[in-house]
Structure formats: C-alpha cells, structure tokens
Design a protein around this nucleic acid. Structure first.
Lengths: 253, 253
DNA sequence: GACTCGCATTTGTATTATGTTTAGAACCTA
DNA sequence: TAGGTTCTAAACATAATACAAATGCGAGTC
C-alpha cells in the first residue's frame, strides 16, 4: 500500500497510470523501440492489478505510443507513429521538456493551420459564430491589464475561429492547439501586461473575419503568430535550456 | 459458440469489437449524446466477457468518442470532441458514408496543410528526404498506365513530403491524410488511366521542392489538390448520393 | 415542497485460471 | 556445418467471478 490514493490528480486508476507511463515514454525513461517490462512486473511496480493496467495500456495503444504482442512484449513505437496531436501526449511533452524545439514545431503547425482557418472562418462562418469570435476578443481586451487572465480568452479566441470554419478536421486540430497554447501561454504569462501590439493584431483579425475578408484575416494571423513567437523566445531563456533533436521523425523511410 | 472465430478480419478480439462499436457510433446507430447499453448487456450482445469489452471501450475513450462513469453509463460524446484525425475513425467514416460532404471536409484540410508542408519540405528537407520524394514520384510515373497501381505511390508521394518537413505534427496529420487518401483514391480508381495533367502537376511539385523553391511547390500543390477534387466530384455520383450535414460541429459554444 | 438518506444500478478494480501466440532454443537432417 | 523443423515456455489474450465505489433516483421525513 505504498500509494496514498490522493497524491496524484483525480480520475480513475487506469487514467492515472496511463499518465505515469505516458510521461515516462515521452520523457525517454522508456526509450523508443525498447521493450518495457512484462505486465505482471508493471502491476507490481505501480501497485495495481492487471485489469486497470491493461486498460491503461489499451489507451496508450489507441494513441499509437505502444504495440503489444504475445511473447514479444510491449514495445514503444517510433515517434513517427505517435498521434502527436493527442492532448494528453501534448501535456506530457510540455511537462517533460517545453524547450525551444517543441515551440518551434508548434509554431510551424500554427502557421500552416491558423491562417487557413481564418480564411475559412471568414468565408463559411455563420453570423452567430462570428459573434462568438468577437465576444472572445472583447473578453481578451477587457482582461489585457492582467496577463494571467488573458490566457483563457486568448485560447478561446483561436478556438472559436476554428469552430467557425465548420470543418471537423480543423476543429479537431484546434483542440490540440488549444491544449498546447494553454500550456505555452502559461510559460509566457510572466510578462507584466499583455502586449498592445498583439492585442491590436487580434483586433485586426477579428475585424477582417467579420468583414468576411479572408485574405486579410489570414495575413494578420500570420503576423500575430510571428509576434507571439518573438515575444516567447525572449521569455523562454528563463527556463532550463534543454535541447532536443528529433532524431527519429524522418529516420525510417 | 455463435462466433466462428474467423468471420471478421484478423486482430485481437478487443480490436474487432472496437471496430464494430466504433462503426455503429460513426454511422449513427448509437446516436450522439445517447447512453449506450450497460457493459453486461453489450457483453451478451457481442458474445464476449467484460475484460476485452472494456479494453475496446478504453480505446474508444482514448479516441474521445465516449465518456464513461459509474451509474451514469457510457455516453457518446459530441462529434466536436472526437479525434477526427484518428485513422480508425477515418476508416469508419469512409465505410459508413463516403459522401461529398466528407470529401469536401478533407479537401479543406489538405488545402490548409499540404501547400505549407511543401514549403517546409523545400526549406528544411534533407537531401535524403528529397531523394525519397523523387523516388516516390518516379514509382508513380512508371505505374501511371495502371490506375490501380498508382494508389500506393501517390499516397507515399504525399507522405514523403510530410516527412521531409521534419515537423512531428505535420507528419502525424499526414498519417491521417494518407489513410483518407488511400480510401479516396480507391473510390476514384475506376478511371482508365491516371490523368496526365495530374502526373505533370506531381512532377512540378517534385521539381520545385528539390530546387528548394517552397513558394512554387506550395502553389503547384494547391493546383493539384484542386484538380484532384475536380476529377473526384465527377467520379463520385456513381456512388450512393447520401447527404450529411454536420449539425453538431459548431453547435455547442 | 424541499431536503436528506438509503437503495439499486453501473462502472471500477481485484483475483485467478486458462487459452493462444510466437520468439527463441533445441534438435534433427542433409 | 548449414538449414530447416519442432518444441517449449514466456508473454499477452480472454474468461469468469467477486467485491468496492460512486451516483442517479426515489422513498421517506420534516
């Protein structure tokens, strides 16, 4: 009975164990390609029975982090197989090493995704969806004095644009980006006030979408992401400067 | 012993049951928001014990199709929560109703990502990755006489571009797109020969990337996706013309 | 009528036993 | 010795059962 039953966050036992093992995989404690211990050994290590352990394994399997087979054991799949957009996986990544490389990867994803989302939101978005975007912007503007309170409206602003596209895939990707943005904004929340230039950029995006000018909205979104990155790289060195290289993303052809 | 043990495809029991229940959810047999039968009832219905059934449920949970709780039962989550890029989910969608709406959604996703992927592949791609792209193109060109044999090289062409970006998120999205493209190309494979204009467009993309001209590569990719869609909408009416509207993607604000 | 308490239902976890698959060793043959 | 075959056993896959925990819902009470 080494586990005090309340030390981890809430949720079921299988969810907590999935978090633990997932974190260990992402952090490299269980290396890619390696075979992790047999189930019975893991049961003993984490102090639980096979039922919840296997349910945790099946969830990791659904996220494509591991492969299981008789006799061969449970292997950690190469990172190129992982479902990198899974919110849980993103949480584990940010918890493990929110380094410059990860933020750069995220930046590239946003540059690909968000301008086009703006274009579609301007083109396809319903009037009600546009109102939601405007409301999120106004909540952001009214909270801009207190940076810690801008996180939620800022994330919601970007998410509401994605929803306005009426595209299920972009909405789904937006869920991943929202998770990552929330974690990223927490890193950058130490600044004293929300930068006025970024707020202005949000306003330009909002206005362009409501005017159904998709091209301008996309352009302003690109500018915002660029600004956001610039303000982040100067805030990042306050953290530990661990450096990670991909090393396996495009290795196996 | 109602189950003949070989009627379904290969794989574990939990995987097969996950496929069945997932298909039913996607097809609407289990409606969004509804509470599906208790576990013991499902066990009886599918003729198995709770252990593999729950493992299947946990995988659906990891894909965010369902939420489970004591007494409250197992509910089908709204589509906006689903991980729409999961390859399994895409398979179920195409099996259920590969209609014009779904292909339009996919088209929008591709327009958002593949041009930017081309730009990054031209900019960041290693020489080896570029060779891989060229090889995929050459396999495509040499098979262009027999459309059924162009499917795999064509999918591999797009996937190799994604890998060349060295961006884990784009590679992950590419896995979803590859699954969808494979299913989509099978629909369009009835044409007699691979269109010469599309092959030429592939060549332009390939050359632009190898010349590290990201802007041109992106432009040609946009053109290709447009052509691909045009050739598909005329091939689609041969299928049943079921019409589906989203109805819940952007409903809950 | 509102509030509390307890019951019944459903999921969550534990335990044990047995079946199935397959990597790897042992063995046999040419 | 090389090659293939068989065999074994380790590990996962499935089953069956029991109990614990949580919670929606209704009965009972104030």
């Amino acid at each position: 009975m080494s586990r005090s039953r309340a030390e981890d966050g809430a949720g079921t036992l299988s969810a907590r164990v999935m978090d633990q093992i997932g974190t260990r995989i992402v952090s490299g404690a269980y290396k890619v390609g390696a075979t992790l211990p047999p189930e019975l050994m893991l049961c003993e290590e984490y102090g639980l029975s096979r039922t919840p352990l296997r349910e945790a394994m099946k969830k990791l399997h659904a996220k494509r982090l591991i492969a299981m087979g008789p006799k061969s054991g449970t292997r950690v799949l190469p990172e190129s197989c992982w479902n990198q957009l899974d919110p849980d996986l993103l949480r584990w990544r940010f918890a493990s090493s929110p380094d410059e490389w990860l933020l750069g990867q995220l930046q590239e994803l946003r540059i690909a995704f968000e301008p086009e989302a703006c274009r579609l939101a301007a083109q396809n978005g319903s009037a009600a969806a546009h109102v939601t975007i405007r409301e999120a912007f106004e909540r952001l503007a009214s909270a801009s004095a207190d940076p810690s309170r801008t996180i939620d409206p800022d994330v919601e602003f970007h998410a509401s644009i994605a929803r306005a596209t009426q595209n299920i895939f972009l909405v789904s990707i937006s869920a991943a980006i929202s998770t990552a943005l929330h974690l990223q904004f927490q890193l950058a929340a130490e600044r004293e006030t929300f930068p006025a230039s970024e707020l202005e950029q949000h306003r330009l995006i909002c206005d362009a979408i409501l005017a159904r000018d998709g091209e301008a909205a996309a352009r302003h979104m690109r500018a915002l992401i660029g600004q956001s990155r610039a303000s982040l790289v100067e805030a990042l060195p306050r953290m530990r400067g661990k450096r990670r290289r991909p090393a396996s993303t495009a290795a196996v052809t």
